[in-house]
Amino acid sequence: MKTERILQIAAAFGALAVVFGAFGAHALETLLLETGRLDTFETAVSYHFYHSLALLLLGALTHLFPEKKRLITSAWFFIAGILIFSGSLYVLCLSQVTWLGAITPLGGLAFILGWVLLFFSFGKGNQS
């Protein structure tokens, strides 16, 4: 994946995080309060936004360090994490399909792997 694509995805995910946050705070607030899912929705938006910013950082880092291929893999894990972690929580909050909570940890694992790969991208003597 090219630097420009990572930055575009980061921007799109960032915009969606703002949209979902506003939608949850206004249009969905009554529903989320009635179902007891407001905190869950806020968690989904928070992690969505944090990792959109992390993708933005990765876009900049891949531009500065194109030889570090782990940065691209890290970006893929953050993308997967947003889709699986935040996505499953959004759907859970709106549909009340509780089994979706079972896949949410896979998104969390993707986030962790993304951060670990970012860490190891800058180890001593690391060129990958």
Results as ranks from 00 to 15, higher is better:
D39G: 14
S88P: 00
P66M: 06
L33H: 09
L109P: 03
S95N: 14
L106A: 10
Q127W: 08
I9A: 03
H51D: 10
K2C: 08
F122R: 09
G21H: 07
S74R: 00
L38A: 09
T35V: 07
H63G: 11
L100K: 03
I9S: 00
S74D: 01
L94V: 10
A54H: 02
G59H: 06
I103Q: 02
Y90T: 02
Y47V: 08
A110K: 00
K2A: 13
L33N: 12
A75R: 08
E67F: 06
Y47E: 06
G123L: 14
F119G: 11
A60C: 13
I112F: 15
L31K: 15
A15L: 12
S88H: 05
T62W: 10
L31T: 11
H51Y: 10
S128Q: 15
G81P: 05
L16P: 13
F41G: 00
P66K: 04
R5W: 12
V18G: 00
A11K: 11
S88T: 04
I103F: 00
L7G: 07
E4G: 08
F122V: 02
E42A: 11
T62I: 10
L94R: 09
C93W: 11
F20G: 07
L38F: 03
Q8H: 14
A102T: 13
T3D: 14
L55Q: 10
L58N: 02
R5S: 12
S121T: 06
G108D: 07
A75Y: 02
K2N: 14
F41W: 11
V97R: 09
L92I: 02
A22H: 00
F49I: 05
L33Q: 11
L89W: 09
A44S: 09
T35H: 14
L33F: 07
H63C: 01
E29H: 07
L109Q: 05
G21P: 02
A12T: 13
A17H: 02
S52Q: 03
F65T: 04
T104I: 01
T43Y: 05
G101V: 02
A60N: 09
L16N: 14
Y47W: 06
A25R: 10
G14R: 04
L57V: 15
L94I: 13
A15N: 05
I103R: 06
E34S: 15
I6G: 06
F119T: 10
L113E: 11
G36S: 05
L55N: 02
I79R: 00
A102P: 08
F120L: 03
I6W: 10
Q8S: 14
G24A: 09
K124M: 08
L94A: 09
L106S: 05
F120T: 04
E42R: 11
S86P: 07
L55H: 03
T3N: 15
Y50C: 06
F119C: 06
L117N: 05
G59R: 06
F20T: 11
T73D: 15
F65E: 09
F23C: 06
R70P: 03
